[in-house]
């Protein structure tokens, strides 16, 4: 059983909640909807073997997850972006599985208002 701080920067998240106030729930919902779309998109891209699109979508996910303080998730997205930039898909499927798990954890934590 992992702890919340393994997936989220708790201090930064607290700050974000203070800033967003009533909008925080909308933010969480938006992030989860957007990101699950992107995770599915990444799966399609890897199957289709398109490193350039991989780079772009992973880049976007890297940014948005960092903004909601999900740093490990952002790091996994960065590794996928890196593969895309290098023009390879080697290990991309494994990386995506780890990212999918991490996203599930983050989504659960955020939904439970951690």
């Amino acid at each position: 059983m992992s702890k919340p701080e393994d997936h989220l920067d708790i201090v930064a998240l607290k700050e974000l909640k203070d800033i967003m106030e009533g909008e925080f729930d909308t933010l969480v919902a938006t992030f989860i909807r957007d990101s699950s779309n992107k995770v599915e998109e990444l799966a399609d891209i890897i199957e289709a073997g398109d490193p350039d699109r991989l780079r772009k979508v992973a880049h976007s996910l890297k940014g948005s997850s960092s903004n909601v303080c999900a740093m490990p998730l952002s790091e996994l997205a960065r590794q996928l972006e890196q593969l895309g930039r290098e023009g390879t898909l080697a290990g991309a499927a494994d990386l995506l599985e780890r990212l999918r798990d991490e996203f599930q954890q983050v989504a659960t934590l955020l939904n439970n208002n951690i």
């Binding site: 800033i19 967003m20 933010l27 938006t30 992030f31 957007d34 948005s64 903004n67 909601v68």
Partner: peptide, 16 residues
């Protein structure tokens, strides 16, 4: 910003 959540955060900060 095409990313909805990023845009939401940014516009909230700027508005504040």
């Amino acid at each position: 910003d095409d990313n909805d959540s990023d845009r939401l955060i940014l516009q909230t900060i700027v508005r504040k």
